[in-house]
C-alpha cells in the first residue's frame, strides 16, 4: 500500500556545498540518500515529492560539517498482511515462485499454489494446470494475497498465496 507522508531526517553537509546552491545541494543529497531505501517502520521510500521545512544548520566542531534537520514529503510503499497485490513473476522453481511488486519481493510456496497446477521443469520452468489453460512463468503478472511479512531494518520479506478466489495469473506477456 502506498502512503504520502512527512518524514524528517538530519542531513550532514560538507562545507564545500555551502553557497548559493546550498538548498539544491541539500535536496539532491537527500534524494540520493533516501530514495530506494527501506526502513522497517515505513517501508520503501519510493520518491520524494516535496520539502516542508529545512531547519537551522548546526556546525559540528572539528569537522566543519553542518547538520540540517529536513522535513520532507515522500511516497512510501509498505506491504501488509492480508493485502492484495499485483506482482510480476521473477523466478519459478520447484518450491514455488518469487514475484516482485515494485521493490518488494514476495515468495509464493507451492503449498499455496492451487493443487491442480503442477511444476514443469525446462528452460522456462513453470506451473501449469492439467489442461494447460493457465501457466505461471517468469514475466507473468499475478494477483496475490500477502499472508505474512517480516520487516527488517533494511529488508522486507513477504510470503503470499494465490490459492483463493480471484487470485492468480492476470496477464502473461509470453502468451499474448
Amino acid at each position: 500500500m502506498f502512503f504520502h507522508i512527512v518524514l524528517e531526517r538530519n542531513m550532514q553537509l560538507h562545507p564545500r556545498f555551502f553557497g548559493r546552491n546550498l538548498r539544491e545541494n541539500l535536496v539532491s543529497k537527500l534524494m540520493k540518500d533516501v530514495e530506494g531505501t527501506c526502513s522497517g517502520r515505513h517501508g520503501f521510500v519510493v520518491a520524494i515529492t516535496g520539502i516542508e521545512t529545512i531547519g537551522k544548520g548546526l556546525i559540528r566542531d572539528g569537522t566543519g560539517f553542518v547538520t540540517f534537520p529536513v522535513k520532507y514529503q515522500c511516497v512510501v510503499f509498505r506491504p501488509f498482511k492480508g493485502e492484495i497485490l499485483e506482482a510480476v513473476v521473477t523466478l519459478v522453481n520447484k518450491m514455488g515462485f518469487f514475484a516482485e511488486a515494485g521493490p518488494v519481493q514476495i515468495f509464493v510456496s507451492k503449498h499455496l499454489i492451487p493443487d491442480d497446477m503442477e511444476f514443469q521443469t525446462g528452460d522456462m520452468p513453470n506451473y501449469t494446470t492439467s489442461d494447460g489453460s493457465v501457466k505461471i512463468q517468469k514475466e507473468c503478472e499475478v494477483r496475490l494475497k500477502i499472508i505474512g511479512t517480516r520487516v527488517d531494518a533494511t529488508e522486507i520479506f513477504c510470503v503470499g498465496t494465490i490459492k483463493d478466489d480471484f487470485l492468480g495469473v492476470i496477464n502473461d506477456p509470453a502468451a499474448s
Binding site: 503449498h111 505474512g148 511479512t149
Partner: peptide, 11 residues
Amino acid sequence: FGELCFKCGRS
C-alpha cells in the same frame, strides 16, 4: 522464507 513460514505466514 526470511524466517516466515511460507505456508501460514507466521514468523
